[in-house]
Amino acid sequence: MLAAYAAKFDADNPIAALEVGERPEPTVPEGWVTIDVRATALNHHDLWSLKGVGLAEQNLPMILGCDAAGVDPDGQEVVVHAVVSDPAWKGDETLDPKRSLLSERYQGTLAQKVAVPARNVVPKPAGMSFEQAACLPTAWLTAYRMLFTQSGLKPGDTVLVQGAGGGVATALITLARAAGIRVWATSRDESKRARAVEIGAHESFESGARLPERVDAVMETVGQATWSHSLKSLKQGGTLVISGATSGQAPKSAELNRIFFLQLRVQGSTMGTRTELAELVQFMENAGISPHIDSVLPLAEARAGFEKMNAGDVFGKIVFTV
C-alpha cells in the first residue's frame, strides 16, 4: 500500500528522511480494526519524527501520521483517535504512562490503511467531509482540551492565542469564539494576523506587542520565542496552557518570580481523550463550524506538504487524500 514514512532520521534536513512509497498492509492484533483511510492530515509531530524526536530508531521504518478519517470494516464512516493506551488502563488515556501515539510505536495514518484499537474510533458526522474530519484528532482535539479542560476559561473571558496560523492556533481561535470567549491572537506575519480575525479572533497583534489589557489565559504552542510575552500578558491568577514548543524549549528565563508572585498557573496539555474527541465532533456540528484547511494534496505528493510545513508557509491544516 502507498504510505509516507520515516526511513531514517535527519535532524538538520527532515525532508531528506521522508520516503513515499509502498509499505506492507497493517497487521491487526486482537481487538484492533483496519480503517480504510480516506483523508489524513499533517502535524509538526511528523516533522519531529523525521528528526528523530519521539521515535525510536529500532521502530524504523515507521509510517508517519496521527490523523485520519475513513471507513471501518462495517462500512461506518469514522474519525481515528490517535492516543493508544494500555488495554488495562481506565480513565484519561493521556495520563497512561504506557500510552503512545500512532506513528511512535504503532504504524501511523499517512497510508491507505491503518490498524487501531477498536475503541479508538468515533463516528464521523454525515455533514463533515473526510478532509475536514481528518483535521480533528491532533490539532483540534489538542485545542479543545486546552480550552475546555485545562484553562478554566468561561464565556466572557479573554484568551490570547500565540502564533496564529498553525493547526492548533487556528482551532483555538475558532473554538474559543464559538464558545463566547473574547479571542486575541498574535503573529509575526501581517497576512496571518488578518486571517486570524477572519476566522474568529476579535483582534490580532504583532508578536510581542503590548496588549490593551491583561488576559485570563494564554494558549501557548510556540514556546521559547513567546514564553516571556505569554507570562507578561496574564492577569494575576491567570493560566498559561502549553501544548507545544515549536520554537524551542529553553527561554532565556523561566520568570519564576512572576509566576509565584502573581500566582500564575502553568498547565501542560497533551492531545485529548476519546471522549473529548467525540465531544469536539458534536460541538463543531452543533456550532456549525469546520476546520481550516490550508491545502489538500494526494498522498502521493506528501513530500510537497512536508516541505510547505517545514517552511512555515501554513495557515490551517495540510490534508492528504487517499
Results as ranks from 00 to 15, higher is better:
D72W: 04
D46V: 01
G54Q: 08
E57R: 14
P73Q: 06
A39K: 00
L50V: 09
D67E: 08
K51V: 06
L47H: 10
G70V: 01
L47E: 09
A68V: 01
D74V: 05
L42Y: 03
V71Q: 07
L42Q: 05
L60T: 03
D67C: 06
V37K: 03
N59S: 11
R38A: 07
P61E: 00
V79G: 02
R38T: 05
H44M: 09
Q76I: 10
S49N: 14
K51E: 14
L55Y: 06
W48Q: 12
Q58S: 15
G65P: 05
L47S: 10
S49V: 10
N59T: 14
D74Y: 10
G75M: 09
G70K: 01
R38K: 15
Q58E: 15
G70F: 02
D74Q: 14
G65M: 03
A69I: 06
G54F: 05
E77H: 15
V37G: 03
N43M: 01
G75Q: 11
T40F: 07
Q76E: 15
D46S: 10
G52P: 03
D36Q: 13
A69E: 09
Q58W: 12
K51G: 06
V79R: 02
L60C: 05
L42C: 04
G54V: 00
K51Q: 13
I35S: 05
E57T: 08
P61N: 04
L60M: 09
L42F: 07
C66G: 12
G52E: 02
M62Y: 11
V71H: 03
L60R: 00
A41V: 06
L42A: 06
L60N: 02
Q76H: 15
W48D: 12
W48N: 13
L55D: 03
C66I: 10
L60P: 00
V37M: 07
N59Q: 14
P61L: 01
G54E: 12
D46A: 07
P73I: 01
G75R: 11
D74A: 13
L64C: 13
V79W: 02
L50N: 04
T40D: 08
A39H: 02
I35G: 01
L42G: 03
K51P: 04
S49E: 11
K51Y: 08
A68N: 02
A56Y: 12
D72C: 10
C66N: 15
E57N: 10
V37L: 10
I35A: 00
D67G: 03
L50R: 02
D36P: 06
Q76S: 14
V71C: 07
P73H: 08
L55C: 08
R38W: 04
L55N: 04
P73D: 10
N59V: 12
L60Y: 00
D36M: 06
N59H: 13
E57A: 13
V71D: 03
W48Y: 15
V79P: 00
D36G: 09
N43H: 06
N43S: 06
L50W: 03
W48I: 12
V79S: 03
A56D: 15
L50C: 08
D67H: 11
V79M: 04
N59Y: 07
D46M: 08
A41Q: 06
A39W: 01
E57S: 14
V79F: 00
I63L: 10
G52F: 01
G54K: 04
P61H: 05
Q58F: 13
H44T: 11
